[in-house]
């Protein structure tokens, strides 16, 4: 893992691109994440609800974005992680996770980095934006 102590506000984090999301991805995530809302896996239910098709769980992209953090540091160094969900992620979307350092702070006796992170699709549409605080 990278030496985080040299990171400073403005620095970009190493990006992470995930494979396109398929129906299989959603079926697996439905079972693995205990989120059985049929809107993500049952096209009949999705159409009944007025959608054209099933769409991805927001928490799938949040899990992807967490991998941006855990490829950067051991997860025991993550103090907080939060996101705001934007537009819906559709089948075949390819999610890229990226971020940058926005601040370096001392809190509770720790040197911490404040990170602004985002998941975007192949068109550059932002799916979720978030913030994480990690300790060095």
């Amino acid at each position: 893992m990278a030496d985080l102590s040299t990171l400073k506000p403005g620095d970009a984090l190493p990006a992470l691109t995930k494979p396109p999301i398929t129906r299989t991805t959603l079926a697996l995530f439905c079972g693995a994440s205990n989120d059985h809302n049929p809107i993500h896996v049952d096209i009949d239910f999705a159409r009944e609800a007025g959608m054209e098709d099933v769409f991805a769980h927001g928490m799938l992209s949040m899990a992807y974005l967490a991998q941006l953090l855990t490829q950067l540091t051991d997860q025991r160094n993550i103090r907080s992680y939060g996101v705001r969900f934007g537009s819906i992620t559709h089948l075949q979307d390819e999610i890229t996770c990226s971020g940058r350092v926005t601040d370096k702070v001392k809190h509770e006796g720790e040197d911490r980095l404040v990170l602004e992170i985002a998941a975007t699709d192949q068109r550059g549409d932002v799916k979720l934006v978030g913030q994480a605080v990690i300790t060095l």
Binding site: Q75, R79, S80, Y81, G82, F85
Partner: peptide, 8 residues
């Protein structure tokens, strides 16, 4: 799902 936050 609008927002989700974790404090570890």
């Amino acid at each position: 799902h609008g927002q989700q936050q974790f404090d570890y």
